[in-house]
Design a protein around this nucleic acid. Sequence first.
DNA 1: CCAGCTCCCGACCCTTCGACTCAGGACCCC
DNA 2: GGGGTCCTGAGTCGAAGGGTCGGGAGCTGG
Lengths: 155, 155
Amino acid sequence: MAMRLSTKSRYGVRALFDIAYHSVGLPTQIKDISRRQQISPRYLEQIFQKLKKAGLLGSKRGPSGGYFLLREPSEITLGDIIRATEGPFELVFCVSENPRKICPRKDDCVASEMWTDISRKLGDFFDSISIAQLCEQAREVGVEREYNHPYTYHI
Amino acid sequence: MAMRLSTKSRYGVRALFDIAYHSVGLPTQIKDISRRQQISPRYLEQIFQKLKKAGLLGSKRGPSGGYFLLREPSEITLGDIIRATEGPFELVFCVSENPRKICPRKDDCVASEMWTDISRKLGDFFDSISIAQLCEQAREVGVEREYNHPYTYHI
DNA sequence: CCAGCTCCCGACCCTTCGACTCAGGACCCC
DNA sequence: GGGGTCCTGAGTCGAAGGGTCGGGAGCTGG
């Protein structure tokens, strides 16, 4: 049960992957992503607002509106997504920006230096993995692709 | 606020470091560690039970009892400690041992494979850092050392 | 041989946080 | 201008984190 990632991060990754994989450039709507990825649409909305603020997503309202990536999939990393949904990588509070949480022993604590060091490495690691890589993998495995058609068919 | 480590892990690391650094082989008592590291003794007790079960610590009761390392500091890694206090490294529930938590989409989810992969790498990374390295660093920085004397001086 | 020291065990408590849900407003397009 | 879509902020519920406590078990020095 150690160091779990929040669902916001996981869903965020899956959602961005979904857009990159299924979209042909048109805005993708929450209800479609929600259906394909089995994520509550209300919750997705909330997550997407964070991703927007982080500059990863753009949006358009009204009929045939939706969300779209603001960068190439190869330029969006897991690190970006996790930082957007959960904040900066800090394994430990000791040296956080939050003044309430700073450890009073910080200065003579060898551990604190180590933790910040590790946190940085962790961030670098996540920054080395892009959404494009996930798409690549999905393609190899043969995940079915669902294209967003510009026209809607009424049955 | 991403992926925070629990205090159990952090305190566990500091406590084991404390024993390795200050002890001359004699059992170290909770009250001393608690004083030097500023950790609630009651809470430390709880953590030490986990470290014992994991085979990292041994103990002796009664007067002049205490806890001692069961391995060389160079053979105790951060990974060992974190696993002992928080369980296995799993960034994500999808593929955990806990059957209740397995993600139903596991099989066709490219992400799940990625998460387990990253979890493994994370564990490997923490296993590459030992308590001995922390001691080394403390020595360099010149952290004061307090020896446990076999005899008590009454003032 | 026993008093007191230390570890041992399990239950308990309180606060915070994660994971959603919801009501209603703002835009947009046809 | 009406229905579809995104936007905003508040509210809820349960779980988990972080810590406390009472009392028992084993040891040992006097």
